[in-house]
Design a protein around this nucleic acid. Structure first.
Lengths: 131, 131
DNA sequence: CAGAATCCGGCACGATACTG
DNA sequence: CAGTATCGTGCCGGATTCTG
């Protein structure tokens, strides 16, 4: 069930614009795909936490993320796993525990998240002073 | 009506974790604020288009973005203007026209968008081959 | 042309309860 | 502990119509 940019049929009538054509379109699709992965209130935070904290259990995430409900955490983690950004491993301890860890591929998101965070901090400052 | 991370009260009980404290919290807030600006199906695309195409009229955007409805474009542009990422200038031509342009501050988002786009392309390739 | 107004369906997200 | 199941709701985003 891969919904790759289905929302945007690649039809662009160039009735008046002869400039923006070829690879500009690919960028749009890329951005949408990327945003699909990142979208959702918690995705980025989960990845960030895992990126920063290493291997963690469900409960750890539930406690650290602060505000997230179990259902959401569960669902978002499934999404991330489907995208091969995190791994899920079940430990056969007495009360069963599950550990989540970011994949090598998932680490490639660090750049993105970092730039988002950096911009956010800057934005925060700007919005504080002015007004 | 500034809703700065109101969703996440900064209460983190450290019953068991003594590590993640101080500035980690600030990063979370920063990320949320940044995502608030970027969130929405069209925001990034609009900024990207303006970033790439320079000064543009409403109709241009409406045609280029392909798929967006006037209402959405209008609303998103208002949001962006409120965040001081774009400027809106009315030209007193015969049928009135309005031009939108990205601000200097808005250009600071280029880094973010670029990293998102780059990752998206890479992600796209990966998902194509495997599976 | 550049929007505002209105109506509406779906799903993102939340709260709560239950299970192995 | 690590989830599912169920239910409810807001608001996000789309389609359409009207206006200056």
């Amino acid at each position: 069930m891969n919904k790759f940019s289905k929302s945007h049929p690649v039809t662009v009538d160039l009735t008046k614009h002869t400039c923006c054509t070829s690879d500009h379109n690919e960028r749009v699709l890329a951005i949408n795909d990327a945003m699909d992965v990142i979208r959702g209130k918690w995705k980025v935070q989960i990845i960030g936490t895992l990126l920063f904290g290493g291997k963690m259990r469900f409960m750890d995430l539930l406690r650290i993320i602060d505000g997230i409900a179990a259902k959401m955490l569960s669902k978002e983690l499934q999404d991330l796993e489907a995208h091969q950004l995190v791994t899920r491993t079940v430990k056969e301890t007495k009360p069963i525990t599950v550990e989540y860890e970011i994949t090598e591929y998932g680490k490639s998101l660090e750049t993105v998240i970092k730039s988002v965070a950096d911009w956010g901090i800057q934005h925060r400052r700007k919005m504080m002073q002015r007004k």
